[in-house]
Design a protein around this nucleic acid. Structure first.
Lengths: 197, 197
DNA sequence: GGCCATTCCAACGGCAACGTTGCGGTTGCG
DNA sequence: CGCAACCGCAACGTTGCCGTTGGAATGGCC
């Protein structure tokens, strides 16, 4: 077998992503990550340093993927409902992310990769503000707060799934229910952000 | 000093609530809880059994307090904005609760005290449905989904505070910012749920 | 072949946490 | 008074994890 250091690194990181998302930083053990990856534990330390550093690497990577994975819809923010729907879809397809973000929020401490993320969010807020100036979004709303709550509509389902289950009585894994939830998110975003009719 | 078994029980539970909310089930140690309460660790086991049982007791208690703490506003659900605002206020005043709910959600597993909570939520959904029949809320929206997202508007801030900070650039502890956020939540709930103008 | 980087493996020391136990002292109560 | 329940304290055995280390095997490269 040829050397494949990049593959080893990737396999370790994927295993770490799954384990961290599932059990959180405290509940995860380095031994389990290595076991899942089928690679010796000692490699983890050579590649990523200690557990804290590994967690931050994982989180940063997943955030990069999110930024790359949710584009603005064709119509731009005028199609705010579709933007919210796509964010919902991304979370549904990548449940890791919401969980990692929550572990981070619960851990307290300063956010990982703060500078890049802040810059990214500033761009997003600016896009909302521009859409307001263009009149496609209601301009009476603070753009940062608005962007934050649009994300809330899409992400909250995955944040407290047990509450969603008890309220709706429906299984989140059921495609029909997921479609209903997505449609609701789309309409909610439109009612929230579009100019008053 | 007279016996005060109810007092020691309460002090242990309060300490456990703080520790669990802060560090989560995994990060919390029984010794720390006992230390915070100023009571010997051994008492914890006599009163509450093991760590898992203690966590469930704490969570159930906090949920009871929430149910008792957020009433409907005077105008009922016609004043949907105020209802959302009060939910926001409750979370701001009791940051424990949102954190405990998240730890529970992340832990997976079946929800604690499921039967009572489901019944409670069913009542809430029924109240939303009744308000729709009365025409004070838009009747095109599924009441369970609507109730869920109204909660999202109020609670999301406390779920990922690090994201709120990076997006708004404002300190959540600042009273002015909190007032702005609350006002925004009120308006958002109204736009979401009131009949189309 | 000679050299080096990568990988695996097994084991280690150190430490922190869980849950339990034994014992002596204290309080209520019949 | 006598007994049972409550409480504090210290220590215990066990388990599990972290992060490291020494050594050996393997694959690439000159």
């Amino acid at each position: 077998m040829a050397w494949d250091t990049e593959g080893t690194r990737r396999r370790l990181k994927e295993a770490a992503t799954i384990e961290f998302a599932e059990r959180g930083p405290d509940g995860t053990t380095m031994a389990r990550i290595a076991e899942r990856a089928g690679i010796n534990k000692e490699r983890l330390y050579k590649y990523f340093g200690d557990k804290q550093a590994l967690f931050e690497t994982v989180l940063r990577d997943e955030l990069d993927k999110l930024a790359a994975g949710v584009d603005l819809p064709p119509g731009g923010l005028a199609d705010i409902g579709e933007f919210a729907g796509r964010t919902f879809d991304y979370h549904a397809a990548h449940p890791h992310l919401a969980r990692l973000l929550q572990w981070e929020g619960l851990a307290g401490g300063p956010p990982a990769d703060e500078k890049n993320r802040t810059a990214h969010y500033r761009d997003k807020v600016e896009a909302f503000a521009a859409a307001q100036r263009d009149g496609v979004l209601d301009d009476e709303l603070d753009p940062a707060h608005l962007a934050f709550l649009i994300i809330a509509l899409a992400a909250w389902w995955f944040s407290v799934p047990q509450v969603a289950y008890m309220l709706t009585g429906a299984d989140a894994a059921d495609p029909a229910e997921r479609a209903r939830r997505r449609a609701f998110v789309v309409r909610a975003a439109e009612r929230l952000a579009l100019p008053s009719r």
